[in-house]
């Protein structure tokens, strides 16, 4: 198993393969800034919740990198975090407060953590495995990844626990 590229996104920094990407904004505005600079042609981005935007941007930046002599896209997406989809869950709950019962299907679909894996799969045409785990530590995820059969995967930690509170550390991994 070899890691070909990695990215770390905090609320104020982006580091791709060890090199910082200079950003002007912080928090959720930073994700929009990254979208405008590096993507720009996928308006569905603006429908996504923060967790999906985070995973989507991380995947965009990672999968644009040359795949170490192999140009085929990854075939699996394996992500994890501790708090599932809690930020969007709370946003959704806020729309169905007592006496104001008008649930939004557009928000409801994002009340599952694996939706971000689906967004990445749709964007990049990945028809292999997509899995989302809720774990205490990234070490647990490493053990699961090592036991999962795939040729190449986008894998790692992707978490948004509250407004402007998120963290992603993703890698592309090859098994051949």
């Amino acid at each position: 198993m070899r890691v070909t590229h990695d990215i770390e996104i905090t609320t104020s920094s982006v580091i791709l393969d060890g090199q910082p990407i200079v950003v002007q904004q912080t928090g959720e505005k930073m994700l929009v800034e990254l979208y405008r600079r590096f993507v720009g042609d996928y308006p569905k981005f603006f429908k996504m919740d923060t967790l999906s935007r985070l995973g989507f941007i991380a995947a965009e930046l990672l999968l644009k990198q040359p795949a170490a002599g192999n140009q085929q896209p990854v075939d699996a997406v394996i992500l994890a975090n501790r708090s599932a989809s809690i930020k969007n869950d709370r946003d959704y709950l806020a729309t169905i407060t007592e006496g104001n019962y008008y649930p939004s299907p557009a928000l409801f679909v994002y009340t599952l953590p694996n939706i971000v894996t689906g967004e990445i799969a749709i964007r990049h045409g990945i028809q292999g495995e997509t899995s989302f785990y809720i774990l205490d530590t990234p070490q647990q995820l490493n053990a699961i990844i090592a036991a999962t059969p795939f040729q190449s995967a986008l894998a790692g930690w992707c978490e948004c626990s509250a407004q402007d509170k998120f963290y992603a550390k993703l890698q592309t991994i090859w098994n051949n």
């Binding site: 299907p105 679909v109 939706i115 894996t117 749709i122 990945i126 028809q127 292999g128 495995e129």
Partner: peptide, 11 residues
Amino acid sequence: GSIHNDANHLS
């Protein structure tokens, strides 16, 4: 066991 995404639509 096997897991696959449609890569088509969220819902």
